[in-house]
Amino acid sequence: MNFKNICLGALALAMVSGTAFAGALDEPDNMAPFFTDASMKTMKPKAEFKAAWDAMAKDKQGAMMKECQDAAMSKPHAEFCANLQALGGAN
């Protein structure tokens, strides 16, 4: 019985922490406006990048800025975060 409870607890923890790791920078819907292609490999020029940022909801902007300030979260999105920092972050 104790082993079963431990396994269920570990499974629940894995499920909860898995969703916690997926952040605003990992959401394709959040990131797509900043890229020119569907594969999200080529960033838009600075003017279009800024326009996409300005059009984004404030809560999404805040979540993205927070993740860009976290070294571990921003590492896979270094180019995006560098462009965001160049804008000065928020409006």
Rank of each mutant, 00 (worst) to 15 (best):
D29E: 15
E67R: 02
P28F: 03
T19M: 08
A10G: 08
P76C: 07
K66M: 01
L87Y: 02
M40Y: 06
G23E: 04
G62H: 04
D29Y: 04
K58W: 15
P76T: 11
G89N: 06
T42R: 00
L8K: 07
I6T: 12
F35H: 14
H77M: 03
T42G: 00
A51E: 14
P33W: 14
M65W: 09
S17A: 08
E48Q: 14
K66A: 06
A32V: 11
K60Y: 05
A57Q: 11
I6L: 15
E67P: 02
A10S: 05
H77Y: 15
M1K: 05
G62T: 14
K41E: 13
A82V: 10
W53F: 01
A57R: 10
K41D: 08
P45T: 08
A47C: 00
A12D: 04
M65G: 00
F3K: 11
S39L: 02
K50W: 03
M73N: 00
A47K: 13
C7D: 15
W53S: 09
A32S: 12
M56F: 10
D37I: 05
Q61T: 08
C68D: 00
Q85T: 11
H77V: 08
K75L: 11
D54P: 09
E48R: 08
P76S: 07
L8T: 08
E67S: 02
S74I: 03
A57P: 04
S17G: 00
T36E: 15
L8I: 08
L87M: 08
E27I: 10
G88F: 12
A82C: 06
A10V: 12
L11S: 09
L25S: 01
A55C: 05
A32E: 12
A78L: 03
I6F: 06
D26H: 10
G18N: 09
A82H: 14
L87T: 08
C68Q: 04
M31F: 09
S74V: 04
G18W: 06
